[in-house]
Amino acid sequence: MTVRKLFTERKLVEKASYRQPLLATFSLTSILFLGGCSSEQKQDKVEITGASTLLPILQSAGESLEKRYPTLRVQVLAGGSTKGVKDTFSKQNDLGAVARELTLEEKDQFEVFPVAYDGVAIITNSSTNILELTTEDLRKVYRKEITNWQSFNGVNSPITVVNKSDGHATLEVFLQHTQLHRREIKSDVIAGNNSQVIKSVANIPGSIGYVSIAEALAAIEINQPIKLIQLDGVKPTLSNVEMKLWPIRRTLYLVSRGEPSPWANVLLDFLQSNEGSQIIKEANYVPIS
């Protein structure tokens, strides 16, 4: 081996010592970039963001549609009605899920599709022997003018008021019905979503809260120690929500900015079909049609 050849080989080795990591980094970046590009390829997809209340309906409907159309993906991300509205304004979704009444501005900007009716139920820990309250009783309890269940001929147990944090649609519906201002409410516990309210009420003897009837029924099915309370003499049942007898109700909406995409239309049509209505009923909501 000549000295020149040795020198060349050594040079190659030296070059390789810093080229190899650079090449590896370059290759890895390229793979990631190409991978990213491929994931950006257009898919048959419906993306929905918003109210967690609509999550069970949309997930079940999505699963049924994905079976019918194997290339379709229905992606549902919860995060609250406000997020649903915000994402729809900025066109970051195909449909926004909203569990409260829409403002005039929102009605002007959006195509609005009512999907189902839901009731907001009053729940207490199962340790209380209370079966019925009136809206006036609720006001007194949430203002802490009444602080013990004995005042309602119940057990001698202090009332723990569980409320929802600002921004939640259920809070707005509750405030609207009770005509309470948020500052009047003296909360002992503030929870985020419906399942947190249920967990809190289930864990604190003597506590009271309000959640979607559908989620309350689902929690009772899995033996959570909570119970539904009659309000103003009306039983909290789905048939009473359907017949508009239950006093705290709301309409659940899907909204889009402009015409919905073709696949979003497929989902909307499906939710209005018999199969869609069945899914809505199974999730303990009341179909519109």
Binding site: S165, I190, A191, G192
Partner: peptide
């Protein structure tokens, strides 16, 4: 932040 970020908008 955990309780309210998902539901907040505008100044909130």
């Amino acid at each position: 932040i955990v309780l309210e970020l998902d539901f907040a908008t505008g100044a909130h």
